Computed example of a mutant assay.
Amino acid sequence: MQFEWEGVMPAVTTKFTNEDTLDLEMFSVNIKAQIDAGVSGIILGGTLGEASTLEEDEKKKLIESTVDLVAGKIPVVMNIAEQTTKRAIKAAENAEKYGASGLMMLPPMRYNSTDYETMAYFEAVAKSTSLPIMVYNNPVDYKIEVTLDMFEELLKNDNIQAVKESTRDITNITRIRNRFGNRLKILSGVDTLAMESILMGADGWVAGLVCAFPRETVAICELVKAGRIAEATAIYRWFMPLLELDINPQLVQNIKLAEVATGIGTENVRLPRLPLQGKERDRVISIIEEGVRTRPEIPVL
């Protein structure tokens, strides 16, 4: 499938049953809610998807199930987060075989690779697959930055097409645009900077709280792109306390609690994660409950 890197692309959670198996029934409920809200793609196997805990057969089931659910309407993107180049190439091969139409890709995990090693890693995978690739640039959490000079080299590979921009430096969007024009598509990867990023020229938003609030997330993106800034700002201000649940070490637990509150998910996580406890659980639930209580009307788009 040919597609543009734009609009809202949810980094969806993986749903588990009480017996710690894939809950494909609840997963389908959530994916259908995303499609109905007008998202532009589905991203599987990210941090929110608890990818490091998934077995290969589970990844296969998730991709194949999602491809069936979207029925060709929107692309299915698989995240790659591996420790070795060999495993990253195999993950890309499997994603393509199972039906994914794009890849999101982190630098090597655990080892802090040099600039040269990082570029070699991305290029090896890019040359091994026909799928388009979005580089996930998150030096805050993963300690490796893909600089603009590095992108200059990486973009010689036609299928490296986009960046999930998570440097937390809003001015980086302007630098990317000034240097590469539209050759490198930009998707904001930080929920609490998403509206600002789109205003500064980002093409879209790889979102987290969209997992629980798809209509509101899509509305912000579409309203900004339509120049209806005041309407977008009103929703974004309502959304901010919820969006802050995404920039937290327990973002998976937080967002799954929000999915429960909106009826499109369960709280089940996979060990070693555990559901939130005590005062922190009470704090998160109070934010979610207030967000649900004051949920805004969505204007006609």
Rank of each mutant, 00 (worst) to 15 (best):
K59Q: 05
A81Q: 08
Y98Q: 08
N138F: 13
A92H: 06
K59S: 08
P107T: 07
E6Y: 03
T17L: 07
I63W: 03
D23W: 04
I80G: 06
L131H: 00
L44G: 04
V76K: 09
V135P: 04
A100L: 11
E6M: 07
S130D: 14
D20H: 09
E4D: 14
N18F: 00
V39P: 07
V77F: 06
T17N: 09
E6R: 15
G7D: 10
D36A: 15
E58N: 03
K127C: 03
T114A: 09
A92S: 13
E19K: 14
F27W: 10
F122C: 11
R110I: 15
K32C: 02
V77K: 13
I133M: 08
S130T: 13
G102D: 08
V29E: 03
D57A: 05
T13A: 14
I133H: 07
N138H: 12
Y98D: 11
N112D: 01
E4S: 14
V12L: 13
N30Y: 00
E25T: 12
K127Y: 00
T118D: 00
S128N: 10
R87H: 08
L131Q: 05
M134W: 02
N79Y: 01
A33D: 11
V8E: 12
N30I: 09
V39R: 10
A88K: 04
A11G: 15
D57F: 08
G7F: 05
A33K: 14
G102H: 01
K61M: 14
V125T: 08
M78V: 04
E64R: 15
Y111N: 11
N112L: 08
V70S: 09
F16A: 06
W5N: 10
Y136M: 05
R110M: 14
A124D: 11
L106D: 00
I80Y: 03
P108F: 11
S113G: 09
K73Q: 12
V77G: 10
A71D: 14
N30M: 15
A91G: 01
I63Y: 03
N137V: 10
L22D: 01
Y116H: 03
K60T: 04
A51K: 01
N79Q: 12
K86N: 08
A11Y: 10
G99S: 10
I42Y: 03
L106V: 12
T66S: 07
E82L: 08
F16M: 10
A37S: 13
V140F: 11
L103P: 04
Y111F: 12
L103W: 00
D68A: 15
V12R: 09
M104W: 02
S28E: 13
E25I: 10
T66D: 07
K59A: 02
Q83E: 06
S40E: 00
E55Q: 06
S101H: 01
T114N: 11
S65L: 05
